[in-house]
Design a protein around this nucleic acid. Sequence first.
DNA 1: CGCAGCAGCTAAACCGGTTCAGCCTCGTCG
DNA 2: CGACGAGGCTGAACCGGTTTAGCTGCTGCG
Lengths: 333, 333
Amino acid sequence: MDIARRAGVSKGAVSMALNGLPGVSEATRGRILEVARELDWHPNNAARALSAARSDAIGLVLARPARTLGVEPFFFQLISGLQAELSGRRIALLLQVVEDLDAEIAVYRQWWSERRVDAVILIDLRVQDPRVDLLEELDLPALVIGGPGHHGRLPSVWADDAKAMTSIVDHLAGLGHRRIARIAGLPDLLHTERRTEAFRAAVASHGIDVAPILMTDYSGEQGAAATRQLLRSPLPPTAIVYDNDVMAVAGVAVATELGVAVPTSLSVVAWDDSPLCQLLHPPLTALTRDTFAFGASAARSLLLVLDGAEGADVEDHVPVLVQRESTSAPSPN
Amino acid sequence: MDIARRAGVSKGAVSMALNGLPGVSEATRGRILEVARELDWHPNNAARALSAARSDAIGLVLARPARTLGVEPFFFQLISGLQAELSGRRIALLLQVVEDLDAEIAVYRQWWSERRVDAVILIDLRVQDPRVDLLEELDLPALVIGGPGHHGRLPSVWADDAKAMTSIVDHLAGLGHRRIARIAGLPDLLHTERRTEAFRAAVASHGIDVAPILMTDYSGEQGAAATRQLLRSPLPPTAIVYDNDVMAVAGVAVATELGVAVPTSLSVVAWDDSPLCQLLHPPLTALTRDTFAFGASAARSLLLVLDGAEGADVEDHVPVLVQRESTSAPSPN
DNA sequence: CGCAGCAGCTAAACCGGTTCAGCCTCGTCG
DNA sequence: CGACGAGGCTGAACCGGTTTAGCTGCTGCG
């Protein structure tokens, strides 16, 4: 190490000085920092990772079939939020996009065996999730996005989907809707199940006993098909709650095509806001959340875990409903 | 290294055997591989990176203001395509989302000084791009997505935007349009400039001498504003070409709001297809490209560069125009 | 004055691989 | 039969940091 030579000390001293560890005098530390700056020195990440048994990287795997991924700004905002916190600690983000859960698990195994990451972020939790068992078995630190529950000892960061769903149903019922349907996302996702339960409970609390729920894969096609099915039923709903914005947009298109006016004859609510919802005609009432802040919060929790803290479940803000022009009182019929 | 002990050879031999290098007999190699499998051995990435002076990772920085990022599936498809090629070589992808070009440059500097990545992928090339100079100066291998031209010695993978733009204009002119406008993206992006040039040349070739071009930041808001400005002008266009799908969607909404029927009174073409374009009403005529394949092709080029090949410019397929219902002959007026 | 204790530092081991000079053992050829 | 070359393998250096045992010199206390 030529900083050591130039400063006339041993490389051990340099290491202590640069890492802010005790063991060197302030005078020496200052001299070493000075030399390091002069030489524009930066630690070699591999060397540091090797001896410290850290990689200074965390991993994120996105496992969704290609067609259902990418229209939502959610992931980018999440990633941005994560990095806002992580980059201050010089922690990099390894991203891998895979087709399915098996591939995702293989990635975790590989990352772990090669010591590529110090921790991973688990997203889109399943009802029975094999990843949780795997990560606990590997002892690979992980943070679950979207708890609580069903994820063993792993810490999580989550938002209260149940409360959010209740606020949507309350809004619709408050407008006078009695025939409310829900077009949900992938049925084996944990948050789909939670939203479904909350939906059932919320409509029941308003004395509504029939409220259909249709499952989809989040794609516009299936959202459109489900909407068509609902609107053609004998007693069509006067309001539909969609699990994402893409399906809501598709739903509005189908309604228009079938001559069902939005919001006059059909109210539409989208879960997850996006520029789309505002561009559409009419602009969609949507549930917004601050995904960037959510990511930042997740990163902070993860850093705590990396620092050895006992992982806890942290609750983020409840998403709020932004009322635009796609919801109104149902037309008397 | 306990594989060495268990197989009764030196660790040098083990290294050769596991990396397929000459220097060990096939019998020994077989025995070593056998032991490695038994022990479920995997190389420690940091150790390998340290001695081989490689990191087995490539970096991708996305520098767009948060608001304009994320609605397009483009990046995820690109990343998926990249990884389809890279993961076979056990090369990881480091992703960083930053606000602006300065931050992006800082990330390159840091990655390079810490030897975090072996190469980077440069995207959204600017007309005068400081990143090109930086990467050449650092001698950090890089692949430019979206050439050719303006990127010094760096190799690139590109699609012929000019031809694609010509095909759009030809399509519109063929339908009988004589008043064609273009709503472009960020003016300092190289491909914006190239598309602009191609647009000018194409309309000129059809004897059209006035064809307004408005610059935006790709956001729906600015797309809507630009559309409004065009439609309210004394001699409004009968066709508008948008630089992305979000603006096209916003444009259709504005047209509808102003009582301009699509496609009867206004034809709309979107650059870049997405589920959106098909969901909308009417479905949008759009320029599609196989972004996944594009990413895979880019990854192959990058691997060649890493293997020491002289970087070349590789041309990908020309994007093709998919005709849907947002374009038709102009109404006689 | 003697000795314990501590701050400040050095030297060397260590992390887990890769690389290479050099040694041994054959087989081949003159 | 001896020299030579090639194949197969060993042992050690090396990558660039971190960590630790231990040394030195100073201070403080009995």
